[in-house]
Amino acid sequence: MLVLGIEGTAWNLSASVVDENDVIVQVSDQYVPSSGGIHPREAAQHHSSKISGVLKKVFNSVDPESIDGVAFSIGPGMGPCLRVVATAGRAISLALDVPLVGVNHCVAHIEAGMWKTDAVDPVILYASGGNSQVISRRGNYYRVFGETLDIGIGNALDKLGREMGLSHPGGPKIEKLAREGKRYHSLPYSVKGMDFSFSGLVTSAKTLLQKGIKREDLCFSFQETAFSMLVEVTERAMAYLDKDEVLLVGGVGANSRLRQMLSVMCSDRSARFHCPPDHLMGDNGAMIAHTGMKMLTHGLKTDIESSKVKPDYRVDEVEIPW
C-alpha cells in the first residue's frame, strides 16, 4: 500500500509517500520569514506557490497511479496554511480517485515516533513551536497530562532569538550559543502541577539581555531553565502513570541538550529513551502519510464535505482504533 501525505501546518511544506515499512520519498520546502516570526498569510502564500513543485518532485519518483490514498494534515495549525494543504489533498484525491483522510498533526508526530522506534507504551514529550505537551495513551485516546499554559517552547526560543537579533528559527542558533555559556543566571522556573509556562521566562530573559549579560550565558540559562521544566513534568508523568519509556517528538526534539537531559533522567530511573530519526522529528509529510495509512486500514476516511480544516484540533479529541 502506498499513501501520499501532505504537511503544511506552519512553516514547513512537506509531501511524502510511504509504504507499510518505510519512507519512499519526502520532499520539503521551508518558508523563511523576511523578518520577524512566521506570518500566517505569508506562510500560506509560500505553500501555495511551492506545492505543485513539491508534488511534482514526489511524483518524479513515485507513479501517481500507484497511490492508494491521500492524507493531509487537517490541524492543529495556522488556518491559511492548513487550507492550502487541504485544497491540494482534495484535488489529488479526486484526480486519482483514491480515498482522502484528514490527519491530526500531533497524532502524526506521535505515530511517526512509534513507527520508527521500539517504544511500546511511552510518556510522550511533544516539543515544537506551537505545542508543548506531555502525553500518554490511555484506552483509545492520547491523553494530555501536562502542557504549556501560554506559548510553546519553540515559540519561546524564537521570541528570545528575535530579541537577540537572530534570524528565524532562533532555536538552533540559541542551542549553539548556549554551548559556550558557563554562568547560570536565575530565570523563573514555572511548573504548576503537570503544567508549565514560558512567557514569564521570555520576559525575564529580555530584561537580562537589556542589562547586557553575555549572550552565551543568557542562551545557556534559558535552555537549562526551560528544558528542566519540560523534563521535570515528563518525569512526573512517568511516576504518576508507572511508565518506563519516554518518546520525544516535535521540532524542538532536534535540540541535543534536551535529548541529553531526557536520556539522563531516563537512565536515572532505569527507563528507556526513544527519539525518531531526524527526517521524522520536525514537521514532515511522512508522518502524515504513515498515520493516514493506519487510519485508512482501519476504515477511517474523510469525505470532501467534512474535510474542513481544524486549526484548534486537539490530540485528545482523536479516537485511535489501533
Binding site: S228, M261, L262, D268
Partner: peptide, 13 residues
Amino acid sequence: EKKYRIKVLDEMI
C-alpha cells in the same frame, strides 16, 4: 538530586 539539571539550578530548586 536531579542529574539532568545543572547543579546550581538543581540545588536552588
